[in-house]
Design a protein around this nucleic acid. Sequence first.
DNA 1: GATGACTTGATATAGTATAACATTTCCAAT
DNA 2: ATTGGAAATGTTATACTATATCAAGTCATC
Lengths: 160, 160
Amino acid sequence: MQTVGFGQHDHSACMGGGMKAAEDACTAQGLRLTKGRRRVLEILLQEHRAMGAYDILGLLSDEGFASQPPVVYRALDFLVANGFAHKIQKLNAYIACAHPGDSHTPVFLICRSCKTVAETAASLKSTLGEVADKIGFKIETTIVEAEGMCPTCRAAESPA
Amino acid sequence: MQTVGFGQHDHSACMGGGMKAAEDACTAQGLRLTKGRRRVLEILLQEHRAMGAYDILGLLSDEGFASQPPVVYRALDFLVANGFAHKIQKLNAYIACAHPGDSHTPVFLICRSCKTVAETAASLKSTLGEVADKIGFKIETTIVEAEGMCPTCRAAESPA
DNA sequence: GATGACTTGATATAGTATAACATTTCCAAT
DNA sequence: ATTGGAAATGTTATACTATATCAAGTCATC
Ligand SMILES: [Zn+2]
Ligand SMILES: [Zn+2]
Ligand SMILES: [Zn+2]
Ligand SMILES: [Zn+2]
């Protein structure tokens, strides 16, 4: 019910689940969910939308945190690196993960009009069109960018 | 042979084909491939790699074009809008289309080490992993972002 | 309580992209 | 050939996004 992001969902469950998943993962992996990192994740879960780094920074600053960009970028880097949040490249914006705990390749549906972003699970990429149809989202353009290591660089890295 | 972007290919064919496809498309659709637009496309085809807007602007400027950002961004907007080039969101960079003339959803393989970008045709998204395997590219992360219109905005737009 | 790894504070700067408005060019209709 | 409008370009300024760098503090462990 809350997987899709458009339409109704139990938002408090959303938030609680996101925080708990992050806490558990940090405990399990010895990561430190410090005050600033925690607060940024809370904000992203609460707002439940893609937010620019400077939007978040504004909120932090209002709450007494320091107001320099590194404050928010460091927290975002941590959250993204550990899968608690994702960066929406097309919007230069960040959003809390909607499937915390799962290891997954996120797939986003982005409304070009209202900028609402829905994260869908991507177990089967071939079903992207079907998922969109089902919820009434009309896809106009899709970007797919896979990052990794090319043959040349792999060879250079492992000189066998 | 030249579809993949890693490894050898007939680069002059690459360039000629890209320019011809753009010229034909412009003629057919009444678009104007003006001097600046043409030159930017030539540069992208020639270099055959993802280039930042300011990299391109530097070259243009050396050739006597004006050196203000709008010069290059306007040309890039035109080329991207008409499918002659693509933006690689992950790199904030631009690359000439490797499949000009075809209507297609581009799929990019980006080396995180050398930043080389290969564009593969994406008729079947489910084969992305297979394509990568075949050419020896090791995918580490994938981003998929579909842009379009959400149900709410569609309803607001067509008030039936 | 010293060591070292990690985190935060703080200043500065780099990198990417667009707004706004004046001017010119192009093309077509008169 | 004029003229009128659309499209493209010139130009200045500014907005937005992100990182480099180094100093200082925190935390766990020895
Ligand atoms: Zn996710
Ligand atoms: Zn919308
Ligand atoms: Zn293409
Ligand atoms: Zn490489």
